[in-house]
Design a protein around this nucleic acid. Structure first.
Lengths: 123, 123
DNA sequence: TTGACATGAAACCAAAAGGTTTTATATAAT
DNA sequence: ATTATATAAAACCTTTTGGTTTCATGTCAA
């Protein structure tokens, strides 16, 4: 892991596993082991991802009994949103945006229709 | 660099150098050497960053004479925007957003006021 | 009190990231 | 024709990333 420097939001969301963790926590607080059960990697690996997310302040964990429950903290995404807004004026038309959104959705086969069984990233 | 897998938008913008390159190109098309002049690293390093940005389709380069001019292609940011929009509903109030935006601006000393001399990221 | 559970922490590892230097090639200018 | 410019590509290096395994610790339950 990184020596002294804390991870920022941009780095934190760069990893697909971490994005999926965020998505999981969006549905409610969860302890590490339960988060881990949604992945095919070790609990230790997930714990490290949570640490990185925690450095970026995208999640917070509080100890509750013998488990540590993590909670989504979306506020730092504001920085990302602001960064993005700078580039808004470089779209000459709305169609090019829509085009890319649709193309990316297509790669997932538009699976987001069934929300109950959806384990993918937020569309 | 990565072997076969192409870099996606999330990875592409994770690096601060690449974000600064995007910002530069927002002001207009530039050849590699001119982009390089804004950094304290080798032209080769910048070329690699441009390659990653190119994989993410955030920039495109066309050869013109002996130079290769790069252009900003903001469309893939739509995916990021869409991803972000999923988390909109997790802010219970607008103040928490504003708080974080202000705090992050503060870290740069609110330098974005003078737009001409601004060499920082789009705040 | 004795396990079982949930986590923490350390040591280790392979691969990727982010740089460098060197060498080669195409184009422009004199 | 020669030289300077702009890039490309390869080899190499160090640090970071993303994972593992192992061992230690705290807490709940029987």
């Amino acid at each position: 892991m990184s020596a002294a420097e804390k991870h920022d939001v941009f780095q934190a969301i760069a990893d697909p596993t971490r994005r999926k963790v965020l998505q999981l926590l969006a549905e409610g607080d969860l302890p590490i082991s339960e988060i881990t059960s949604h992945f095919s990697m070790s609990r230790t690996a997930i714990a490290k991802h949570l640490h990185i997310l925690s450095e970026a302040e995208l999640v917070s964990g509080r100890k509750v009994g013998r488990e540590k429950r993590f909670r989504l903290q979306p506020e730092p995404l504001a920085e990302l949103k602001q960064w993005l807004s700078f580039y808004d004026r470089f779209w000459d038309n709305k169609l090019s945006i829509l085009k890319h959104v649709i193309e990316k959705s297509g790669e997932n086969g538009l699976k987001v229709i069934d929300k109950e069984k959806d384990t993918n990233e937020p569309s």
